[in-house]
Design a protein around this nucleic acid. Structure first.
Lengths: 354, 354
DNA sequence: CTGAAAGCGCTTACAG
DNA sequence: CTGAAAGCGCTTACAG
């Protein structure tokens, strides 16, 4: 079908050589500059000529050589993304959204996933991306050391941080973790619980610290006692272990509600309660954070704080595109509001004494 | 520290111009060809000269221009990955492994995630990647239409498929879904169940079909009755809905065991059983597939088939690197064996009649 | 509206 | 072991 016009360049010998702009020019009977114009500034080419060139491009299935174009323009139309463990639901969701937004804007995405959040690997990742000459960088920067590495990104390189430090030297887009945690805690307090326990994420993560702060401040503002936060690492296993700790406090009579820093750990807590025969929510209320797809099907369905990962990713990309269009970076932090999703893991405290 | 040698090029005016090879050459007192050699073939340069060049490179923080290099070599050192929904645990895990392996080999990863598995978007994605002049492509190709699109990839472009059709026109690396399903079914049969029900994934996915085939064949080989497979879509919600269907069959007395095509749907089944007051595994045994990180903490902990996603990703990248090194593609399918992980959701059938 | 010239920053033969 | 030359495939002024 594409082949019913004149055959392109001689087929036999030139078979393996890629089609270049000069081939198109020859077939269309114009110079290669005109082909370039058709591609980059079609308005300046006479419609008739343009059509001839377009036909030749289609005929030959010509694709401009990205490297040649990048060499002369100095732009690669590639955005680098640095992320920590994209197997986790949050980073994976944001990467997905960033990728979509980039494709819509005609940008490629080059991804480097970090094995560790130490300073050195982060700098290496950024170095790799700079070596690739990306036009800009998005950092999914949940950890303190990453934020420090951000300081070393040359200011000439457009960059946006996601979920990171609020005072980064670049625009930041983040879910308001503090408010999310406050809402979770308030929900529990409103239900009538005297206080709320907390299983925290690793404290070198900003998210973990902000959630803990939101929880603590809400308790204090309400005049409620503030139990010691239990330390987790985001994993279901950690949730399970601290859940067993919580069982002891429940039995001692002073734990009827817990705000867990993410859904996976909340699952571990649910498991620990189940094993100990402590009914959720009748005897212990549990709130998570993230709203992973599984959360609605936990036993019981989990009340949790939903993060609009997709919106965060989309907005981060928009901010970066703005910089790539030459606008100066606006270092204001954009904050996305989280929603409390109430399901079946929370209830008023039962009056039954254990 | 890096700055205690002679200052590099004049600082003021040239500030914003990137450092190029000629700058390094000037500082080291050699030609730019020698700099190139130090970078690409250090053995051919006198150690003393090499040191001078290396020092200059460090001094100027020089990074070779990728575009210029790609233009002349015709290689971008970039591998394109086409994946469907990288938010899912499986694709996310494989992407992560591929990314690691690529970085180790000095390759960049450009990712395009598909919104739909129709033929057109798949071809567009591949077109985008070709436009970027990637050196090779890895397709995470779980669906029939993707496999068809594979036929249109020019054979000159090195490519590897993951988790797809076994008769693709390129090397394939995949977990042996059929064997995994057979193991799950056999486990249930060995426990003494008369037959095993199945909640299937969407049948246009190869994984779903292979798992269903493994289940069916095992039943037939054992002379067990083959119930009609229930149709799901991988989501917990679908598992929940078909779980309620299963409740009816259980009540009718003919369902005591089910093999669910993935862990997320198995979670939905667990939820449906919980609501119906049917104890797992006492009255119904459940086996999943994938072994997602949450599975061990379900209520009860889920017996499931573990897929070595990381191994699949790593081996796929190895096959591609081999092609990139100029070796002819070996179109044999590499199969990775899945493991049955027995936890607490399976048991012998109880003799209690409902 | 279109073509001839120059040049982007490298690598790769080719001399010496 | 090192330098001078050519060229990769484009885009961008500059003429006409």
């Amino acid at each position: 079908m594409d082949r019913d016009l004149a055959p392109p360049v001689a087929d036999g010998a030139a078979r393996s050589r890629p089609v270049v702009m000069a081939d198109v020019a020859r077939l269309a009977g114009v110079s290669h500059q005109t082909v370039s114009r058709v591609l980059n500034d079609p308005g300046t080419v006479r419609p008739e000529t343009r059509e001839r060139v377009l036909t030749a491009i289609r005929e030959l299935d010509y694709r401009p050589n990205t490297a040649a174009r990048a060499l002369v323009t100095g732009r690669t139309r590639t955005v680098g993304v640095v992320a920590f463990d994209t197997r986790l639901y949050g980073p994976a969701s944001m990467l997905h959204a960033i990728q979509r937004a980039a494709a819509d804007a005609g940008y490629y995405i080059s991804i480097v996933s970090l094995e560790s959040l130490e300073r050195r690997p982060v700098l290496d990742a950024i170095g790799r991306l700079r070596g690739q000459a990306v036009d800009g960088i998005i950092l999914i920067a949940p950890e303190v050391s990453v934020a420090q590495a951000l300081q070393e990104i040359p200011s000439s390189l457009p960059a946006v941080a996601v979920e990171g430090l609020m005072d980064a030297p670049m625009p930041v887009v983040a879910v308001d973790q503090y408010t999310g945690a406050a809402r979770a805690t308030t929900h529990l307090l409103d239900l009538g619980h005297t206080t709320v326990w907390h299983i925290a994420g690793p404290t070198d993560w900003y998210e973990a610290r902000a959630r803990q702060a939101g929880w603590r401040d809400t308790l204090e503002a309400a005049g409620a006692p503030v139990p010691e936060a239990l330390a987790g690492d985001w994993s279901p296993q950690a949730g399970y272990e601290q859940g067993r700790e919580l069982v002891r406090h429940h039995v001692a009579g002073d734990a009827t509600a817990v705000f867990v820093a993410n859904d996976q750990m909340a699952l571990g807590v649910l498991r620990a309660m189940h094993e100990a025969g402590i009914a959720v929510p009748r005897r212990l209320s549990v709130v998570g954070f993230d709203d992973i797809p599984e959360a609605a099907f936990f036993a019981p369905p989990l009340t949790t704080v939903r993060q609009a990962f997709t919106e965060v990713g989309t907005r981060a990309m928009a901010l970066l595109l703005d910089q790539l269009d030459g606008h100066p970076a606006d270092p204001r932090t954009i904050t996305v509001d989280p929603d409390l999703v109430v399901r079946a893991s929370t209830a008023p405290p039962s009056d039954t004494v254990v």
